[in-house]
Simulated scan of single mutants.
Amino acid sequence: MLLADLGPLAQLRAGRLGRRLPQLYVGLWLYGVSLAMMVRADLGVSPWDVLHLGIARYVPLSLGEVLIIVSLLVLLLWIPLREMPGLGTISNALVIGIATDATLAMLDSPDHLGLRIALMVAGVLGNGAATAFYIGAQLGRGPRDGLMTGLHRRTGVSLRLVRTGLEITVVAIGLLLGGAAGVGTVLYALSIGPVTQALLPVLTVRLGPAVDPPGADAATATASSR
């Protein structure tokens, strides 16, 4: 199913908000929960979270607070790229950080390696499902997704190459700051796209022929992470 490429007001006027709004916030909350699961597994996190963990070592802020601040800073980069945030964009910047901190406060790291591996795998799969949930609600891209698609439009470079370049950059900076990468980082990079793509057709809310144009951009969703 194709995703409609709508502006912020059109997203809200497209109807079915009784399903789309709960789906958006369930997806964003699950994203924060799954992120915290990967942190507690201590076997490597997503590329952007390597950066967040690295920054958190140097500031008196929680991981969720760092995530929120970085999200808002990334949104500033949307201005020269002429990206327009939607309700889902702003919610993404705030809700994921809150959910991450809430889950970290309740979840301890397992003592046994087998349990840590299970927690890591569950976190990666949950993150893919969460991504499909919030993208499928069609209420706006996340801050990092918008940066990726904006750079793609402005430079003409493929989404895949733009995403790879961004993630290599944030991982490198995160590692220099002392962030944690590992097998979970590799697993995330290899599986998040396929998991999201497999679930997106089921979770994408159809908005009707008036706002489901034939040329809508489906590649954006399958190339996005957050």
Rank of each mutant, 00 (worst) to 15 (best):
D101T: 07
A132Q: 05
G184K: 05
R153M: 06
L53R: 13
L119S: 05
L76E: 01
G126V: 12
A198W: 15
G146F: 03
T222D: 04
A223K: 00
V70R: 06
L73T: 05
L166E: 01
E83A: 04
R144G: 00
A105F: 10
V59F: 12
A219C: 00
Y188R: 01
G128E: 05
G208D: 13
Y31R: 00
G178V: 10
W78F: 14
P60Q: 11
E167N: 00
L17Y: 05
H52D: 08
R144L: 04
P22C: 04
A216F: 10
G7V: 08
D42F: 02
L104A: 12
V211E: 09
R206G: 09
R19P: 00
M84G: 02
I192D: 03
V45T: 10
A129G: 04
A198N: 01
P209C: 01
P209E: 15
R20D: 00
R153A: 14
L125W: 13
P214Q: 05
R226F: 15
T222P: 00
L75K: 06
V195P: 04
V26C: 13
A118L: 15
A198F: 14
L115H: 13
I173N: 03
T222F: 13
T204D: 09
A122S: 14
M148N: 09
R226C: 07
G146D: 09
G126W: 10
V59R: 01
G179P: 13
V162P: 00
V59K: 03
L51H: 05
R206A: 10
G15I: 06
A118T: 13
M148E: 11
Y58E: 07
A223Y: 09
V170H: 04
S191W: 13
R16W: 11
E65Y: 02
V50G: 05
G165I: 02
A216Q: 12
A56C: 07
A132H: 09
L190D: 02
S71Q: 10
A14L: 00
Q197S: 14
L35I: 14
V59S: 05
A4F: 09
W29E: 02
P47T: 06
L53N: 03
V186C: 02
G184N: 03
